[in-house]
Amino acid sequence: MPAQDNLKPVLTATEVNALMASVYPQLNDEFTSYEALDVFPGGCTVRLNANERHLRPGGTVSGPSLFTLADIGGYACVLSHAGPDALSVTTNLNINFMRKAEAGPIDGHCRILKLGKSLMVFDIDIVAGPEGHTVAHATGTYSIPPKRADNVVK
């Protein structure tokens, strides 16, 4: 399915990171584990800087850590394309785990499949390792609150 091709970002990756740090500071605490790397028309790239805190026994990055990366990808897309409304929320997220991910940078390549007035549907390909193999793939939906002057964070 091709991504929606008429989308233009309203925030940069730097602005998305600053907004997430202000409205969701507990995401990264004192570490920068999750971050937006790039925002482009119709999508974004996010990263998990996975270290020992993200590993389950056996040296594999945990499913909850990869699930969080998928959710952060959707959040970065909705913030950067629908506007800086921190009250946008996940309404659905499905993930398939393909192969083991080890500690190190894990990137999520997110694309918006449909952006409407109240919902955004996206998918994200999560890749890791020297060859950039897909370790997980997710699809999700974000609910976008109605536009009001009092719920926009700038």
Rank of each mutant, 00 (worst) to 15 (best):
18 A>Y: 01
21 A>H: 09
23 V>C: 03
26 Q>E: 02
28 N>P: 00
29 D>T: 12
29 D>C: 13
29 D>G: 13
30 E>V: 15
30 E>T: 15
32 T>G: 11
32 T>V: 14
33 S>E: 03
34 Y>N: 04
39 V>G: 09
39 V>Q: 08
40 F>S: 05
40 F>C: 03
40 F>P: 04
41 P>I: 07
42 G>H: 09
43 G>Q: 09
43 G>T: 10
44 C>N: 12
44 C>W: 00
45 T>E: 08
45 T>S: 10
45 T>H: 04
49 N>R: 14
49 N>A: 15
49 N>H: 12
51 N>D: 15
51 N>A: 05
53 R>Y: 05
56 R>M: 12
57 P>G: 14
58 G>P: 00
60 T>C: 01
61 V>Q: 00
62 S>A: 15
63 G>Q: 14
64 P>V: 07
64 P>N: 09
65 S>L: 05
65 S>Q: 13
68 T>V: 09
70 A>P: 12
70 A>I: 13
72 I>E: 00
74 G>A: 08
75 Y>R: 07
76 A>L: 10
76 A>Y: 06
77 C>D: 14
79 L>H: 01
79 L>E: 03
80 S>M: 06
80 S>K: 06
81 H>G: 09
81 H>W: 04
82 A>E: 03
82 A>R: 01
83 G>T: 05
84 P>V: 11
84 P>R: 15
85 D>Y: 08
87 L>E: 02
87 L>V: 02
88 S>T: 11
91 T>F: 00
92 N>H: 14
92 N>V: 01
94 N>D: 13
95 I>K: 12
96 N>D: 13
98 M>I: 13
102 E>K: 06
103 A>C: 09
103 A>R: 05
104 G>R: 04
111 R>A: 14
112 I>D: 13
112 I>V: 14
113 L>Y: 02
115 L>T: 11
115 L>R: 10
116 G>H: 09
116 G>Q: 12
117 K>G: 10
118 S>L: 03
119 L>V: 08
119 L>K: 14
121 V>N: 07
123 D>F: 11
124 I>T: 15
124 I>E: 06
125 D>Q: 15
126 I>G: 08
126 I>W: 04
127 V>K: 15
127 V>E: 07
128 A>S: 12
128 A>N: 01
128 A>M: 06
129 G>L: 01
